[in-house]
Design a protein around this nucleic acid. Structure first.
Length: 796
DNA sequence: CAGTGAGCGAGCTTCCGCTTGACTT
């Protein structure tokens, strides 16, 4: 047993450091925090200075026992967790739990996993910084107080199992407020005027645009009329050098953004792939807010650029973070060996690695030098003028390797040159076009753009961006989905030759895919929290408490006092709001009265989501309830639409002596007959479907069911060849397998099928399991009702 | 992807940050 025990946070890191330190050291990992507040209890002694009550979670007990044993055998224990608030606390918990002694415990830190950095760190040990630890305890206790006092208020006033917290509630607020902006947005039309011109005596064509937008149809027509007889002359020609600089190397949030834009990865997908690259030793740590690259890495990158591209492409740069609250315990995300351009791995791993490689290289490359030419073209009978621009790259610099993407809809940087034009030269307009455009509504958040905004606000940490997005979906506050656009007409007027031609065209506007949309529950919870707890939802709340944590870390404030001050203000609000007696349920909207019965109709959040209610609970008769459909919302539903929901279930009549009923279930409208269900296709509506149509659906379903089983085998009842929506497949113990191309499903023998199952399960085991896991974590977000979902999960 | 289909008076639910692992009834 070596004399020295080194404890780091991550096992992959431990492996690397073990190599650097050799046999005199044993390097182990704590796997993050080893101790925390109890999972289920409040675990804060309010009356006793907010003393936290810690426990070692059951899944960490074996690990802690191992660490304890190793610590006993070592002469010196080196606590090498990260140099930030959380890392310091991890070291402190280790010190306490392992029963270490000051004389044989050393605290060391490094910001990069390189041999020189580790060796240097060993030379400069220090003691645990208890002020920094206390700042972490304050952070932990504050989050627990906010989360565990606020959430029960929501259970009581809105719906069980909801949650609120310093980070997630602000994330929901951003999405909810953006949606309100969009709902209130009034699009204004305007006219954009473009022209294809050609210098006199030349065949070259020049794309030019008018320097102002025209407001109305009449103004656009008047302008085109003027152009009919106008002369066009080149005015000022300006040539300006333009420099472009590369983007800094990746942090967690910029990696998530670029992987979303360039590769279409979700935030959690990016982290999963990055984790596997990290574990294979291919990239540095993937949860970081640092832009720093180690000197060792800079040397290697410089060498790579110089030898493959040439010295003129090299420019070593030091980037400094500007993001709020960055703790910079690691390096930026980079390849561990820059000479490796390509790696072995899955397609996703290759793509993500390639992205990281390019970004890292580009960050140390020379600026691109461009020349931008702007030509003004005067219109003889109008004050406005056209402008044509051209761009030439004189030196491509970093553009040779990497161009950062933007969120704006793909507008490729159209690099083009202009033909020679000098002041005074005449221009011919081949055509002049006025196109009606509309001011654009604000864009909804994507996962990645939400992460960017949270980071800008200093809310959340690299390790929590992906989990936060999962949480707000799992709670049903937000859904990832498409918003159907609306069709909009616009006009295009074109002057060609002597004629002005007007065309009407139409486009789809506001259609978005993969965007984060607030649900009714999300909206109601946000409104509620904004009304009663605005200080917690304040975008600056985190920044403010971070300042206090900094004071604690510097030893200027005592953490218990700071939490005490907060609690004194916060807790009475909780008491007050819990005791409120509200006339209507939170978020309830009264739509009017049912014309038939005169009873009131209202919409609100029920136990299982948004419902419409007919009648009041004070009536003699019990009120009737019906769930809102997926595309309906509490805020926008009309009385007429709400009343329609009560028409379900409808009894259409009898078929083969059994009732045929129509209803709307979790997965849309369906026909029920004799205990069997058939989905109603989108082309029909549950309100208008006839008995004949319904019977047809039932018969069709029977037919496809009959065709479903292609082959079964007496020897293996669980093995079947079935006909699915996407063609024939093999089903075996709840798993499905593709049938290889070129084989006739009906002709397969038992041996064939067994071979396919054996082969497929061997070949795709890891990826299939990974996919299953992804689906399992994703599902809760997609379905609407938590209660039924849980039952299912338990069964499965 | 391979098939699902309710209830609105049981119970329990929840935070943020560190880190990876993964029973077979």
């Amino acid at each position: 047993m070596p004399d020295n025990l080194v404890i780091v946070e991550s096992p992959a890191k431990a492996k690397t450091i073990q190599k650097f330190l050799g046999n005199d050291y044993k390097v182990m990992s704590s796997y993050g925090h080893i101790r925390d507040l109890h999972k289920k209890d409040f675990s804060i002694d309010i009356d006793n200075g907010f003393e936290p009550i810690y426990e070692i979670p059951s899944d960490k007990k074996a690990l802690v026992a191992d660490l304890k044993k190793a610590a006993k055998q070592a002469k010196t224990v080196w606590l090498a967790s990260d140099e930030d608030r959380e890392g310091e606390a991890i070291s402190w918990h280790l010190y306490e739990v392992l029963g270490l002694k000051p004389e044989n415990t050393k605290r060391i830190v490094f910001h990069e996993i390189t041999k020189p950095a580790i060796v240097e760190a060993i030379k400069h040990p220090r003691a645990i910084d208890i002020n920094l630890v206390n700042a972490q305890q304050a952070r932990r206790v504050l989050d627990r107080i906010v989360g565990f006092e606020l959430s029960p208020v929501l259970w009581k006033k809105i719906k069980p199992a909801l949650s609120a917290g310093r980070v997630q509630s602000v994330a929901v607020r951003l999405i909810a407020e953006r949606e309100k902006e969009i709902r209130n947005f009034k699009s204004e039309p305007y006219y954009r005027v473009t022209s294809t011109m050609q210098p006199e005596g030349s065949q070259a064509s020049v794309a030019a645009e008018l320097n102002t937008r025209l407001k109305t149809h009449d103004q656009a027509v008047a302008f085109l009329e003027a152009c009919r007889t106008a002369r066009f002359t080149v005015g000022a020609v300006t040539v300006k050098p333009v420099k472009k600089s590369p983007a800094p190397p990746f942090t967690t949030s910029t990696l998530q953004q670029e992987a979303a834009r360039k590769l279409g990865f979700s935030v959690s997908q990016t982290m999963r792939v990055a984790q596997s690259l990290y574990e294979s030793g291919l990239i540095t740590y993937m949860r970081t807010d640092s832009l720093n690259l180690s000197n060792l890495a800079l040397g290697a990158i410089g060498n790579e650029i110089e030898t493959t591209l040439g010295k003129q492409y090299l420019k070593i740069r030091k980037y400094h973070t500007t993001s709020k609250g960055a703790q910079e315990a690691h390096e930026a995300i980079r390849p561990t060996a820059i000479a490796h351009r390509d790696i072995e791995g899955t397609a996703q791993e290759k793509k993500l690695y390639n992205l990281i490689w390019k970004r890292t290289i580009a960050s140390q490359m020379a600026d691109a030098e461009l020349e931008r030419t702007t030509v003004d073209i005067a219109v003889s009978n109008r004050p406005e003028h056209f402008t044509a621009t051209g761009e030439v790259i004189n030196f491509d610099g970093f553009l040779k390797v990497y161009i950062e993407s933007t969120d704006a809809d793909a507008t490729p940087a159209d690099m083009h040159t202009l033909p020679p034009m000098t002041t005074g030269k005449g221009m011919m307009a081949r055509d002049v076009t006025a196109t009606q455009r509309f001011t654009q509504q604000p864009a909804r958040y994507t996962e990645a753009s939400l992460v960017r905004t949270l980071e800008e606000l200093g809310i959340g940490r690299p390790s929590t961006y992906a989990p936060t997005i999962s949480t707000i979906q799992a709670r049903g506050y937000v859904e990832k989905g498409e918003s159907k656009g609306t069709k909009r007409d616009y006009e295009v007027m074109m002057l060609a030759g002597d004629k002005i031609e007007t065309k009407r065209k139409s486009e789809l506007t506001g259609a978005e895919k993969g965007k984060l949309l607030p649900t009714d529950v999300g909206m109601v919870v946000n409104d509620f929290l904004m009304q009663y707890f605005p200080s917690i939802l304040d975008y600056n709340f985190t920044a403010k408490v971070e300042n206090e944590f900094d004071e604690i870390a510097e030893g200027k404030e005592v953490w218990n006092n700071e939490i005490g001050k907060f609690y004194k203000k916060f807790h009475p609000d909780i008491e007050k709001v819990s005791a409120l007696r509200l006339e209507h349920k939170v978020g309830e909207r009264v739509l009017g009265n049912d014309p038939k019965t005169g009873k009131p109709v209202s919409v609100k959040i029920g136990r299982f989501g948004p419902v419409v209610q007919l009648g009041s609970k004070d009536d003699d008769e019990k009120p009737q309830f019906a769930s809102l459909q997926k595309d309906q919302s509490i805020e926008t539903i009309t009385l007429a639409d709400a009343l329609k929901l009560f028409e379900m279930p409808r009894n259409l009549g009898k078929f083969e002596d059994a009732d045929v009923t129509v209803a709307i279930g979790r997965f849309g409208p369906y026909v029920k007959h004799n205990g069997k269900f058939v989905s109603i296709p989108k082309t029909m509506s549950p309100q208008s479907i006839t008995l004949d149509e319904a019977c047809q659906l039932i018969v069709d379903k029977r037919e496809s069911e009959a065709k479903k089983v292609i082959a079964t085998f007496a020897e293996e009842p669980e093995l079947q060849v079935l006909n699915g929506r996407y063609g024939p497949y093999i089903s075996y113990k709840k798993q499905n397998f593709k049938i290889p191309k070129g084989k006739d499903a009906a002709q397969l023998t038992l041996a064939d099928v067994r071979a396919i199952v054996a082969d497929e399960s061997n070949a795709t085991k890891s990826s299939a399991r990974r996919a299953a896991r992804a689906a399992a974590t994703k599902k809760p977000a997609a379905t609407k009702q938590p209660a039924t979902r849980k039952k299912k999960a338990a069964k499965a």
